[in-house]
Design a protein around this nucleic acid. Structure first.
Lengths: 230, 230
DNA sequence: TTGCATTTATGTTAAATAACATACAAATGT
DNA sequence: ACATTTGTATGTTATTTAACATAAATGCAA
């Protein structure tokens, strides 16, 4: 039934590995599974969180609407990872929206159950503190990157970020996520035109190869160099 | 002796208010006071945190070095607030530097003592989770602001941010912090020249009044409007 | 298939902002 | 009191990037 939820909770990689069997059982009883199609909205800026959302399968983008409706992707989620936990723990409404960029499965854990466990299990609290602290560091880094690097630097950093987040296909070169040029632009703080143009330039420089939405990294060192130089 | 530390720990506004007297005593025994002059560095990017730093008196800027040594201010601290807790809890070295922009007093709480308390007191963990989650929301907001708003929007948002953070003088108009034009620029992601120029423009439009480093807000609504429009 | 919408591609122009140059004022040290 | 540095101010130019325009390619549905 919500076998997907059970898998997450039992997963050795998840933060729930610090829980004992009884605690895990609690979580399983109070969690529900939901299925999303590609392009489905999981939640919207302003919505109220009602539980801890965990991505079991698929890929999700988290983005904010900026000036003139222009969107900025602030995070990309992969399994097994949390979504919207910032708002939940800050006791705020969502400040960003989440949309599935592939068919996805999420598992929602009831807020009350989670909080009860947090009270009794300090290791779980520690895990969450560590997660939030890491992501804050990432966010601060990104602020500097997106504001200070030039277009080529921002784009190459985004490509490296996508590679690090989702990994590579069996050919050890193709980034394992297929975004529209618009999404790549929204991730890299540039217009779609400029994302397309700069990708083409990279391709002509043999740094990457393009085939539709497939992006193959040909010269990793080169990409890293461009990213560092800004 | 470290009376300043004691004040922080007993302060009703600090997150330590959830502790009992015995726990507070523990903290006091394992904390030390340090005094910093204006422009003193408290820690540098890459340093290893060795405790929880709390600002007791003064004002501190947290900034990152970006492309070509250009600095970006990511946070401004005021009493009673924490500094560098992100790196401490993420178990990382500092990703940013902290510098006193006024004579300041900080109180450092030993990591081991803090962690012991976190294990036994879940309310304290909760407080830290909430703080980190709030700051992450702030950071994501800032990313969008700094990348999408135009110069006038970024500068007015920075002025409003400084007002909200440090408050106003008795005249109910002058922002209670005295930054160099360069710092204002580094906060707003622009060059010093453009910060100076745009401040002058705001002054000529009677939105603010300038007197050296004193910035008086004459038209709050106007400033908010400019900030929102981007 | 055909038509229509969307995405991708590329060239041109316009706007925003950084970079640079210079001048002057204020603070600081000797 | 003077020289030296630092901060502030403002004008000019160069560069980056957004905005706009157009068109080809692709995906999708009737």
């Amino acid at each position: 039934m919500n076998i997907e939820c059970h898998n997450i909770i039992d997963n050795q990689m998840s933060i729930f590995s610090v829980l004992n069997d009884d605690e895990k059982e609690q979580l399983k009883k109070h969690s529900t599974c939901t299925y999303y199609k590609k392009n489905d909205i999981i939640y919207k800026e302003g919505d109220k969180p009602n539980g801890l959302i965990c991505l079991s399968k698929g890929k999700v983008k988290i983005f904010k609407e900026g000036v003139g409706g222009r969107e900025q992707i602030v995070r990309m989620a992969k399994p097994v990872g949390f979504i919207g936990y910032r708002a939940l723990f800050a006791d705020q409404n969502y400040l960003a929206s989440a949309e599935a960029i592939e068919d996805s499965v999420i598992c929602t854990i009831e807020k009350e159950t989670l909080y009860k466990l947090l009270t009794s299990n300090s290791d779980l609290s520690f895990s969450i503190i560590r997660s939030l602290a890491s992501e804050l560091g990432f966010s601060n880094n990104r602020t500097v990157t997106l504001t200070q690097k030039h277009i080529r630097g921002r784009l190459s950093e985004s490509l490296l970020f996508l590679k690090d987040t989702y990994g590579l296909e069996e050919d050890a070169a193709t980034i394992k996520v297929y975004l529209s040029r618009e999404d790549i632009a929204n991730l890299s703080n540039m217009t779609t035109s400029n994302a397309i143009r700069t990708l083409s330039t990279f391709a002509s420089e043999k740094i990457i190869a393009l085939d539709g939405r497939k992006i193959k990294i040909l010269d990793l060192k080169g990409l890293e160099r461009i990213s560092e130089l800004g």
